[in-house]
Design a protein around this nucleic acid. Sequence first.
DNA 1: TATTGTTATACTCTATAACTATA
DNA 2: TATAGTTATAGAGTATAACAATA
Lengths: 141, 141
Amino acid sequence: MQSNTTTPDKRQLLELLAHSLSAHFADFSAAAASAGLTAMQAKTLTVLRRAPASMRSLADTLTCDASNVTGIIDRLEKRDLVRREVSPTDRRVKILVLTDEGEKAIDMIRERMEQVQTGLDKLSDKERSELFRLLTTVFPQ
Amino acid sequence: MQSNTTTPDKRQLLELLAHSLSAHFADFSAAAASAGLTAMQAKTLTVLRRAPASMRSLADTLTCDASNVTGIIDRLEKRDLVRREVSPTDRRVKILVLTDEGEKAIDMIRERMEQVQTGLDKLSDKERSELFRLLTTVFPQ
DNA sequence: TATTGTTATACTCTATAACTATA
DNA sequence: TATAGTTATAGAGTATAACAATA
């Protein structure tokens, strides 16, 4: 079986990527909103779900200025989703830890995403592997 | 040649999509910033580059409330990148048209994106076609 | 001296609700 | 009445600069 379409050029692929990622972001925002969170707050919880982090390293991961993280964490801490702890080795550093409620919130959002993103279910195992490989090539980790 | 990796599950694909989204958005924001624009302003110019649109339809395309569009267009119009015209058929409707300078700005950003997104250059024609097909399947237009 | 985190400031984006002018 | 667009308001994210505490 052979495709009868011509190879898409770089511009077409960029437009499709923009559209696809935009759709993904809309879904993520909606999933976050279903837990009463913004996309940025949900992303922050996702990062801290993997491992606790300092304010500094969180700012690097979120690629935003450190001054922004203060406000983001303030709002999450006010809702008992995140806890600030003082580092035992460097008293300047705050270690950010997810509370049990914070873990529950991000796990719920992640489940919601798996329910909503039905497009991925249309792919065969072989196609999933190929999409994974291609995206990793285009956006190296 | 055969891959020795197992098929990624849905969660892994979702995480990769999130990572790709972040990387692409960071690149787009940087490209927009190089023209002194925010990502939202650049996206607005991208939409209007295809065809003029009313405030209402632009709000639908940007998936935000109509009240936001007023401010976004205010700022773009103040810099002579966009022009409001009154619709000849319905005097309530404003038609948004890109100025020559607005066209120049978004074309420059698009060129910058093509230079920056070098990941796509790593793909063969066949891989580009396959990525296009897979993304269209997962995120239908 | 350098780094971590915070505060102050200003701007943009966001949704909601109330308003106007047209249809 | 219903729709298109605006205004007012409040909250969230953003960068910059200045600051205190600690290394």
